[in-house]
Amino acid sequence: MVPPQHSLVRMLSTWTLRALPAWSRAPLQDDPQATVAAILQAGYAGLQVEAGDPLMDAGFRAGAVMHAAGRVIAPAQAHELVSRHKALGFGLTTIHLGTGFESAAEGHALVEAVLEAAAAQRYPVHVETHRATLTQDPRRTLDLVERYPALRFNGDFSHWYAGCELRYGDWERKLDLLQPVFDRVRYLHGRIADCGALQPAILDEGVPHVRDFRALWTRAMAGFRAHAGPGESLYFAPELLPHAFEVEGRMVYPAYARQRRGVDGRTEDDCDRWQQGLLLADIAEDCWEAAGGA
């Protein structure tokens, strides 16, 4: 009997929809159900949201694939987060783990708590490669993989490419060294960085940093295909953050989206993040084919 084939599934992080400029072509509507329907019609299979997102209930009602995002900075939080997300009906969760300031012992305790919670509740939890977390450094991440081979990742390689200037030095050797991470990627956040910015607009697919991300994603997809279980899916979710947004009544300025001065003199995003997300998903499809995907 031929085992079920692996698949690449397009998701959309709803961060991509936040604080879009008025001229964006995103199909946002007053009715969340209509918005979700338009997102699915655009080719996405589902949404990745934070619990309580305005589109969460509409996504579940529409039968979309629904994934969660969260953060764990203390071991005791792991079981609570997994229990809550599983009870809400999500299929899996990707997490920011820690702050990056943990000692080796503290980092080990965090990883063990997450792995134990995921195993106990039979619920997938993928640790995101992200700045200001336990996985902000590639070397430390590789050390964690060696100690905890059961780790699975949400690869957001923009954080390493820009934050660790991954391109500086022997690029091909770095790709080879990162193979244990690639083999454990089960989710990918769609964002392409250059060496100076985490989220520049893609205006030319032939520029070096776009080619580099094709290599990163193709490696991760090939690693997934070689090591994932029969019928398992790899999820690709464009996650393009705004320049600023409100959290609990206060404005924060992560400055992911780059800004320009518009015709009215006010600053605005320099691109349509909705359109950029569709482009990233198309690039991911190319990488999937290059990795041997059907």
Score class of each variant (00 low, 15 high):
1 M>R: 13
4 P>A: 13
4 P>W: 00
7 S>I: 00
7 S>F: 01
9 V>F: 03
10 R>Q: 10
10 R>H: 15
11 M>L: 15
14 T>L: 04
18 R>P: 00
18 R>L: 12
19 A>P: 00
21 P>E: 03
22 A>L: 07
23 W>P: 00
23 W>S: 12
28 L>W: 00
29 Q>N: 05
29 Q>Y: 00
30 D>H: 12
34 A>R: 14
34 A>S: 11
41 Q>G: 05
43 G>V: 10
46 G>N: 03
46 G>P: 01
47 L>G: 02
48 Q>E: 15
48 Q>K: 13
55 L>K: 05
56 M>K: 01
57 D>Q: 15
58 A>R: 06
59 G>Q: 03
60 F>G: 09
61 R>E: 11
63 G>R: 11
64 A>K: 09
67 H>G: 05
72 V>Q: 02
74 A>Y: 07
75 P>I: 04
75 P>V: 06
80 E>M: 12
81 L>Q: 09
87 A>I: 03
89 G>S: 10
95 I>C: 06
96 H>Y: 07
96 H>L: 02
98 G>W: 01
99 T>C: 08
101 F>V: 09
102 E>F: 08
102 E>K: 05
102 E>L: 08
103 S>A: 10
105 A>N: 06
106 E>K: 10
111 V>W: 04
118 A>E: 08
118 A>Q: 11
119 A>M: 01
122 R>L: 08
122 R>P: 00
128 E>I: 13
129 T>W: 04
130 H>V: 12
135 T>G: 05
135 T>V: 08
137 D>A: 10
138 P>V: 11
141 T>Y: 07
143 D>I: 02
146 E>Q: 14
147 R>H: 04
149 P>I: 10
150 A>S: 13
158 S>C: 12
160 W>R: 10
161 Y>N: 08
163 G>I: 12
164 C>K: 14
168 Y>S: 13
170 D>Y: 04
174 K>L: 13
183 D>L: 11
184 R>F: 03
187 Y>C: 10
188 L>A: 13
188 L>M: 15
191 R>L: 10
199 Q>A: 12
201 A>D: 03
202 I>F: 01
202 I>Q: 00
204 D>F: 03
206 G>T: 15
208 P>H: 04
209 H>D: 05
210 V>R: 11
214 R>Y: 01
215 A>Q: 14
217 W>E: 00
222 A>E: 12
223 G>Q: 02
224 F>E: 01
224 F>Y: 06
227 H>Q: 11
227 H>F: 06
228 A>I: 13
231 G>F: 06
232 E>G: 08
233 S>L: 05
235 Y>H: 12
236 F>R: 01
242 P>A: 08
242 P>I: 13
243 H>W: 13
246 E>C: 14
249 G>R: 08
252 V>K: 05
252 V>M: 07
258 R>T: 09
261 R>T: 15
262 G>W: 07
264 D>K: 09
266 R>A: 14
270 D>M: 10
271 C>L: 07
271 C>G: 00
276 Q>E: 11
279 L>D: 02
283 I>Q: 06
286 D>C: 11
287 C>T: 04
287 C>N: 07
289 E>S: 14
